[in-house]
């Protein structure tokens, strides 16, 4: 999550916070109640109904028993409902009964799906591809593919995209690019012992030219400071590599956890979210852009003076 300070304010304003998750995360530490959920391999989940190119339904079924005290979320909902005297809304004992009923409505059954896993259906909404000569109308004002979006024009937006220059890094700063490592799922697996064996901290990728300019060496630790003066809580390892441009740095998301209860993950690497204080929002469709943040390097421990 970017902009941690705002987020924390929002959380403090809550009366009560429940976290339901399969793995402990930073946010778990803020919860009043934690309900540990079992993983997708240990529970039934709602049907996946795909009306796409080839319509299909799929059922997720438990492959193993839940470990420890973890429970499927339907169980939690039902138990809470029972406590609140709303139990009659859940007229079943096990969610598989609901799934079985739904499947029977679709002309199959849990029994059959257990052998199939995924069931495919024939298309009913017409052919997959347009054929030559077909009369087809798109769902736009003109019925055609619109390069000039009349819809946007009606609402007073640019009907054709107009180039807007994006913010450039001030001198001595570098654009912060973040991304994912294939071995971790967001930040939630940072406390998993097997996966931390693969990667236990992130590194800041720096182009050799930049490294030379700053006299940074491979595996050296640095602190990062962004354009708003936000300094990273922990230091991060330098990786000097040609895999990044000279005006940007890169780091993997999901590290730099500052909750001591995350015993494995605590204090390894830097959290990119912490440094993302500028979240830009696309005025038309509301999408967010978080690559407009810039960082610079600090080679001396910025906390040292505070500690003295």
């Amino acid at each position: 999550m970017p902009d941690k300070t705002t987020l924390k304010k929002a959380m403090d304003a809550l009366d009560f916070m429940v976290v339901v998750d399969t793995m402990p995360m930073e946010i778990t530490g803020y919860a009043d109640v934690v309900l540990p959920e079992c993983t997708y391999l240990e529970r039934y989940d709602d049907l996946r109904v795909e009306p796409h190119r080839i319509p299909s339904i799929a059922v997720r079924m438990p492959a193993a028993k839940p470990k420890y005290d973890s429970m499927p979320s339907w169980w939690m909902a039902k138990k809470i409902a029972d406590k609140m005297d709303l139990g009659h809304y859940f007229p079943w004992d096990d969610y598989s009964e609901v799934i079985d009923w739904q499947l029977k409505e679709l002309g199959t059954s849990l029994e059959e799906m257990k052998t199939l896993g995924v069931k495919k259906f024939d298309r009913e909404s017409g052919a997959l591809y347009l054929r030559e000569g077909d009369d087809f109308e798109f769902s736009t004002n003109t019925g055609k593919i619109e390069l000039y979006a009349t819809d946007l024009a009606e609402h007073g937006f640019d009907p054709m995209p107009i180039y807007t220059a994006h913010p450039e890094p001030p001198s001595g700063f570098y654009r912060l690019i973040y991304g994912r490592a294939p071995m971790h799922t967001f930040s939630r697996t940072a406390n998993n012992p097997n996966l931390t064996d693969l990667m236990h901290e992130n590194a800041v990728w720096i182009n050799p030219k930049v490294a030379k300019l700053w006299s940074l060496k491979k595996d050296q630790y640095v602190w990062l400071k962004n354009q708003d003066g936000q300094v990273s809580t922990f230091p991060i390892k330098v990786r000097v590599t040609e895999r990044i441009r000279w005006d940007s740095v890169y780091m993997v998301h999901g590290f730099g956890h500052s909750n001591k209860n995350l015993k494995t993950a605590f204090g390894h690497g830097v959290s990119d979210s912490e440094l993302i204080t500028n979240v830009m929002i696309d005025p038309i469709m509301g999408g967010t852009g978080m690559r407009g943040n810039f960082i610079t390097f600090i080679t001396e421990d910025p906390g040292k003076e505070a500690k003295l």
Binding site: M183, D197, L198, M199, H200, P208, V240, T241, E242, R243
Partner: peptide, 9 residues
């Protein structure tokens, strides 16, 4: 620059 690393740590 040539770089060789263990991605699996």
């Amino acid at each position: 620059m040539k770089e060789e690393i263990f991605v699996s740590g």
